[in-house]
């Protein structure tokens, strides 16, 4: 009797973890050619495999929501360091790649004094980025814009506000509400999650 119940207990333990971090989305077999803030090629999500990742989606002309989300990523990174969590990397993907070139992303990180040792800012061709985000249900559509005297226009995106927990296989296992993410919740999840 005991012998049967112990495997059952283990089985249930496993199942309940699966339920807490079910596979929500994935990029399937697709890969996207991106570049980071230093102009280095990053094949996404291939480059993420083997480590757990937190991925967020931003644009640098965003004055309100994205800075909050970015700040949450920074707070998570600081807590990870404090708590010895080192199996997790961070990624911020720009959905406004025409503006957010590698130098713009690099400057964005510098202005905020961000630690890029385990955090990369990614950009790429517009089509590539659009495919990447739409595949996982992240949306960024142009809303209001400002036209300058020189004829240049900048757009403000209406966008999904999200941080995704991505497993070692590149599958999305949980989503947090970007700018209002509960840091304790993420840290607790990261302690539990290493697959």
């Amino acid at each position: 009797m005991k012998k049967i119940l112990i495997p059952i207990a283990i089985f249930f333990t496993f199942i309940s973890c699966q339920e807490k971090f079910p596979v929500l989305d994935s990029w399937g077999s697709a890969n996207y050619n991106l570049v980071n803030q230093d102009g280095e090629k990053v094949i996404f999500p291939h480059a993420l495999k083997g480590k757990v990742s937190l991925v967020t989606y931003i644009f640098t002309n965003c004055p309100d929501i994205c800075p909050l989300t970015t700040n949450n990523m920074r707070l998570i990174q600081e807590r990870m360091k404090k708590e010895g969590i080192n199996h997790v990397d961070l990624y911020s993907i720009s959905f406004d790649p025409e503006v957010d070139t590698p130098p713009v992303l690099k400057k964005f990180a510098e202005m905020r004094d961000l630690n890029l040792s385990n955090w990369q800012f990614l950009t790429g061709d517009k089509k590539e980025i659009d495919d990447l985000i739409h595949q996982i249900g992240v949306f960024a559509v142009r809303g209001d814009s400002t036209v300058f005297e020189d004829g240049k226009t900048i757009y403000y995106y209406i966008h999904t506000d999200r941080i995704s927990l991505v497993d070692k296989e590149g599958k999305i296992r949980k989503n947090y509400p970007g700018s209002t993410t509960n840091i304790d919740e993420v840290i607790n999840d990261l302690k539990d999650f290493n697959e």
């Binding site: 005991k2 207990a9 333990t13």
Partner: peptide, 26 residues
Amino acid sequence: MKRILISVLALFLITACGTEKKEEMK
């Protein structure tokens, strides 16, 4: 005996992934 084992099972289920924290709504 069964009862103890069932409670053990239940305990495993609850503790397996740590406690769920409700998201604070600001």
